[in-house]
Amino acid sequence: MKLSFQKRKDMQGFGFISVWLIGSLVFFMLPLIQSFIYSFFDIRPDTGGMTGSFAGLEKYNYALNEDPNYRTYLIQVLKETLWKTPLIMLLSLFTAMLLSQKFRGRTFARAVFFLPVIIAAGPIYNIISGNMASTGNDGGGYSTMISADLLNSLMRYFDIYGISEQAALAAEAIANDIFGIIWKAGIQILMFLAAIQNIPASAREAAQIEGASGWDYFWKVLLPGVGPVFLACFIFTFIDSFTDTDNSVMCRILDMQMDWKYGEASAMAWIYFAIVLAAVGIISAIINKFVYYEVE
């Protein structure tokens, strides 16, 4: 049999992905399907594997209606992700813009701002934030020192113009959680910074010659320039927040697993995953409408 060169070359692609393909089938797809099946069963660990009897949608019912914590946690995580994601995005874009400018000590400043990238995940972060809360030195404590007082007085000032109480409360919540927000923005800052530096210098020059102000430059050159990264960054933030092993839904699922309630745990994980997937899909469709791609 003689295949054309192109055909033969294409077949070699299978060779390159074959190791991964086998691996992902065994270690990813199979477990994925299995956990989906578990969620319909009364599963108990047994010698030599899992045994169980079919339970229909009972586990899903349990997760949504009977479990004392799951639904509360789910709503809490969703809410938190929804208001934190835009804030993290804005903050990281802003910080990346600052860090892309030329000033003395820039290397040091960058090193500091990327620090969360290496620490923010895992038990270290847990202990850091937990400890500070327990000794009163938590984020709330010192952000009051820095910003909340200022913010409150600003709010009081705005109150004259009838800004509602809720806005003030929201602002306070943000000020109290500034620690969590900044610490989750490390990779996003990195990505935005890279995108800003990829904007060709000629674009900036042209804008300057045309007499664009900094404001114009931001809206007409910089923002479209980082557009594609915006989507990537958004999805990253979103997924990072959802799959964070410290968030309360994840902890609940882990607790269930520790209790050997695999059916319930799988059902919970799948409900959660379905919601995440739907949210990512909808929001990326919306963002994609506004993004300008230079290639493709």
Binding site: F27, F28, M50, T245, L254
Partner: peptide, 23 residues
Amino acid sequence: LFGIVIMMILVPVQVTAIPQYMI
């Protein structure tokens, strides 16, 4: 197949952890 890669990014580890343990 690339869809599987995307799935790997999206699916939280928790979903596949127990079956992996069994493997």
